[in-house]
Design a protein around this nucleic acid. Structure first.
Lengths: 411, 411
DNA sequence: ACAGTTTTTGTGGATTTTCACAAATTAACT
DNA sequence: AGTTAATTTGTGAAAATCCACAAAAACTGT
């Protein structure tokens, strides 16, 4: 054959044509993905394929569980590290047959992958070398796409910032803008913010972007970054949006940790709304969650949503009032005095009791005391603070005042 | 004897001398009280007496339980109605021996009483007539006292208003003023306000004044009225001031009802403070309780103290925020929508559950449903509102929002 | 140091609560 | 009218709570 030296030299009209050429040379089905595992092109002449490939082509992206297993199995980390082709043995659970992959590089950045399915044959070492050549040849084509997308990204980000700052007034205008950048309107959405320990580096941005692009738990309409923050417009699909968002955040944090060893990510999301004019509100609420997390690290560690902040939502207001002097809780004052005088822990006890949903057993465990001791202390609290433990009202007030005092101390 | 016609004609230097004279004539111990059962004078030459009289002389007023039993037994109502002497048979429980009493009148108002103890003898009908003459003779002397006291009352009331409106700036000044009108400073106090259905009549004022004067549960430092309101400065003695104040109010209301058939009295008291400069604050708080009672009749029917208002304390403030638009509870909104669509009662259920201190049994009874039904509904609420029932925070927030919506509706 | 008080822990049994599951009832929709 | 889904009620067993009482431990003040 005439292409022993470089079978992929020459011009190709499209990446599809290129994919077909690679497929012809290697006599296997081929798919080309961008750095975020979005399908760019695939060879068309193949009869044999596997479920993973089919699903990828149908949805125009690699299914998340396939990506996950490729991470676990080590293929993706290897591809990101080296320009050498990598062979992936079959993975049963996710419908993945044996395949070989190589990454496409631009300078020292991976901008895509070529996958070759080893249907009823195995690539020879020589063919592996050809695959490397294919990756080099693909570079320019993929890069064009990448650039085009980047330009669009910029326009989209600009739009997002306008929404986050309420710079577009009417619902209709917003819809028009979204349509213009090919973002389909969603029935409900919320703004999610991830905050990192330090300003984001380009490297981190790439990793984050990668994670987000490959997430399919939750449709993400818009994305931007700002110093330490990553800001998203997420569109939950079900009627349990909070659950979706929580799971998304948990899984995002987990993946940041296990794949990129980035631990200290704080997360928050605002209210789930249906009108696009409330994007700014949702954004402010997401920021409020993050602000509160800095003050109340422990109490709301597992809370990400503004809606789940509960009473903390209005602590800013209350603190303001308190600072104006129009606030006092003689009952709490009495308890504090008692605690000081007798080196006891009545306030802490009450607080913990409520933190644990008034559950006696749990609270006793948390405080390392006997359940009877807890009962005794509560009775003592009722006496000293003249608090009726059967009156939820009064209990709530005391609880709020305890937390508010903490909040004040941190401010 | 020379005094067959009127043994009490002539001048007496003091009421003590007069009491001795009556005692001589009737050969019995005699005590003279003002309209509020405060001791004015008593005969000194007697050997025989009973525990009630002793207690009266020691504390310079008739013990409250004695007054109570005299009301129950009917003697006091009779004395207030007629100028005729009344015989009171012995009342064992309160140490009261047999005695005869007559009221002292000025125009058509009772300004005092003369009590004659029938120690080892019984007054004859003729002696009863003499007693009537004694009552007439006592009138002027008692009246002088009464007038003197009224003038003082006016000065005191003026001072009270100054305190209620924070017109005296420093603690020291206040103490000086109080000392000037012979009111001993108390370590703690609170302002109590009773509010009647209509403006107070002179008649009612007298009755109220009477009740308050005869109360010994709680020292009352100052007293004044204002249209529908009776305002008091009460000084609880124990370290359970709220309990004292509550009991005082309950007993006052009960007595207004049973003795004068005045039913619709609303009551409130402010915070218990130690600094006199906070009288105004306590007063404002007492008024706040009354204002809230008008809006939240049912929920806080048995609450009188500002401290026991719990979360309602800051509802004004929250409502303000809510009206500014910075407030929403999507969870509650969802529940309302669901209720409307399915003719259910989830919101009411949750509210009642918290009103009953999260007690399943009580709540089920209150709603007339099976406890399991309640459990089912709560689970439903958790699903629909995406509420974590183990998170006190979120529950509290929902509860507050439910009550706040009610509050808003009433405003 | 010691008498008195307050606090903590232990014990056992009556009472409630919780939970899962099933049956019965009611509401909703075609 | 009939079918499905949602709600309510019933049952029983395991778990938790409540309560009263008592012993032990810790703390207080002189």
């Amino acid at each position: 054959m005439s292409h022993y030296n470089d079978p992929f030299r020459g011009e190709f009209d499209s990446l599809e044509e290129f994919a077909d050429r690679v497929s012809d040379v290697l006599r296997c089905p081929v798919t080309i993905e961008d750095a975020n595992h979005r399908l760019i092109a695939y060879s068309a002449h193949d009869d044999h394929t596997d479920p993973a490939r089919t699903a990828t082509i149908i949805s125009r992206r690699v299914p998340e569980k396939v990506i996950n297993s490729l991470w676990k199995q080590g293929a993706i980390p290897a591809l990101l590290k080296s320009r050498e082709p990598v062979r992936v043995p079959p993975i049963e659970g996710v419908g993945l047959g044996s395949r070989v992959a190589v990454s496409i590089w631009k300078n020292d950045e991976v901008i895509g992958f070529i996958w070759v399915l080893e249907t009823n044959r195995t690539l020879s070492p020589e063919e592996m070398e050809w695959l490397k050549l294919a990756a080099k040849a693909a570079k320019n084509k993929v890069l064009q796409l990448y650039m085009r997308k980047n330009k669009k990204e910029e326009r989209v980000q600009e739009l997002f910032w306008k929404l986050l700052t309420s710079h577009i007034a009417t619902e209709d205008e917003i819809r028009a803008h979204l349509a213009a950048v090919q973002i389909t309107a969603a029935p409900q959405f919320a703004v999610v913010v991830f905050r990192f320990a330090a300003d984001l580096t380009t490297e981190m941005e790439r990793q984050i972007s990668y994670l987000l692009q490959t997430t399919q738990q939750l449709p993400l309409l818009l994305y931007t970054t700002d110093r330490r923050n990553v800001i998203l417009l997420a569109a939950p699909k079900t009627d349990q949006p909070l659950k979706e968002l929580n799971e998304f955040i948990e899984s995002f944090s987990a993946k940041m940790k296990e794949r990129f060893h980035i631990h200290d990510v704080q997360s928050g999301f605002g209210g789930v709304y249906e009108s696009y004019r409330l994007i700014e509100k949702s954004y402010r609420e997401a920021l409020a969650v993050l602000a509160l997390k800095e003050k109340f690290g422990n109490e709301i560690k597992t809370v990400y949503g503004y809606a789940q902040l509960g009473i903390y939502q209005f602590f800013d207001f209350l603190l303001e009032k308190k600072r104006q002097g129009e606030w006092a809780n003689p009952a709490l004052a009495k308890l504090h005095i008692y605690d000081k005088k007798h080196h006891s822990d009545l306030v802490k006890t009450f607080e913990t009791f409520f933190d644990h949903n008034e559950n006696v057993q749990e609270t006793a465990d948390a405080l390392n005391i006997h359940p009877n001791t807890l009962a005794y202390r509560l009775k003592r609290i009722a006496d000293i603070a003249e608090l009726d433990l059967n009156d939820m009202n009064q209990k709530i007030k005391l609880y709020i005042d305890i937390k508010l005092a903490k909040y004040e101390a941190h401010s």
